[in-house]
Design a protein around this nucleic acid. Structure first.
Lengths: 239, 239
DNA sequence: ACCTGAACACCGTTCAAGT
DNA sequence: ACCTGAACACCGTTCAAGT
């Protein structure tokens, strides 16, 4: 009757696997959002009672750590086309899209530094491209961290409602223009810049804000690369 | 007997003010952390029962919005010394220190876009400096958003335990070197870069990561400023 | 106008007990 | 080895009722 032999070192399948647990958590997250992802709901998704989960996982934190890496399972590295800048841009654009594509993914991933297998795969690939581009090892490591923190932080901002006036009700465009009106009505003698820039502050879409920020970061990396290769050419290297 | 007349439009003081509520929330946050900040505990801090709070505040979300702005109450803009780059750097360094100085502040503030009075004050100041530095209005608005998202996102990463192995137990230095060992033990044929850069990836302190990232962003802003002022000088402006 | 009691529908986690 | 019942100590929020 036990048809599906996995072939590895588990003699009888235990009904619940860590893998099954994490995949179920992903389904619950997609369906209910991060607020609805409780140990109890996850248990019922698996046809089991909540305390059972604690046999497979130390606590909810560990579950979220596992889930964090699972969220990276189908993240794609960009094609190796174009220069390093084009490739890094594509990395960030894809990572953002990936996080936005899975419900509340950024809220799970946000403050979590988990070196799971899927993340390691992506890091390995990105570090390789950074070194090929000519970045020093120490810089490549820093840049890898920087880009991750940058995109995650950005998408996290993007997930929350644009303002206090909320996700319940009006769409982003309306909320933004309302916020613009509010800024314009401020006393101009104490807030001249906010009044003058009301449109500039509330107008741009999140897309636009992200790509603006991304281009600034990429410019900064360009500068670093020029500086360090400049040093290598004209510097006092012991070569 | 009602000694403390506020003088404004509140005839009898209602025992609970929104202000008192928010200040109490700040004390609870400092004492118990974000996980300990519940409506019930906040109520007991105020010598009142939980349902009372809902007279003053729509729900916990609104409370957190108010708290977010209160967290900015004593944030200091840097002195107007040095060039724009020095001032923006100091802005970010101070903002980071400010967030790190209040327990779990970044976790409250993170995905929350609340244009409260204290934030508006800082925005007004920063936008002024950006315009004086020569940034175009649209750019100044974008940069203001970028820097906020950048610092908040960064500090949020910094707050979580450095790795899964946890806040409970070993300090950051130990965890970092342990993570380094783990990377070094990876199969070098599939993870050559991770193995080679193990030390670079796990060595740097959060201080170092932050200031590296910050200098890159500032470099990026320099490039933007040069480009746009270049365009203004040699461009086809209708001046 | 402002506060409370009681209740609803939940949480994460532990632990003795079952198989 | 793996799962459950029962319990502990909590949550956010509503709502009739009190003053």
């Amino acid at each position: 009757m036990a048809v599906e032999g996995k072939g590895d070192d588990s003699p009888q399948q235990p009904g619940l696997t860590r893998q099954a647990l994490v995949r179920a958590a992903l389904r619950v997250l997609e369906r209910e959002g991060v607020g609805g992802l409780s140990m109890r709901r996850l248990a019922s998704e698996l046809g089991v009672k909540a305390p059972s989960l604690y046999w497979h996982v130390r606590n909810k934190e560990e579950l979220l750590d596992l889930l964090t890496d699972e969220l990276m399972a189908d993240a794609q590295a960009p094609p190796r086309e174009g220069d390093w800048r084009e490739q890094l841009r594509e990395y960030c654009v894809r990572y953002r899209r990936h996080l936005l594509g899975k419900r509340d993914a950024a809220k799970v991933v946000a403050g979590r530094l988990v070196p799971g297998p899927h993340l390691l795969r992506l890091m390995e690939d990105q570090l390789g491209r950074l070194r090929e581009a000519g970045f020093a090892d120490a810089d490549a490591a820093m840049i890898n961290y920087l880009l991750g923190a940058f995109v995650q932080g950005f998408v996290l901002q993007e997930l929350g409602p644009l303002s206090a006036s909320e996700a319940m009700g009006a769409d982003r465009r309306e909320v933004a223009t309302a916020a613009g009106e509010q800024l314009r009505r401020l006393p101009p003698e104490t807030f001249p810049h906010l009044v003058a820039l009301a449109g500039d502050l509330t107008g741009p879409s999140m897309e636009a804000r992200f790509s603006f920020a991304l281009e600034r970061v990429l410019d900064g990396l360009s500068t670093l690369l020029e500086q360090s290769s400049g040093v290598r050419e004209e510097g006092t290297s012991h070569e």
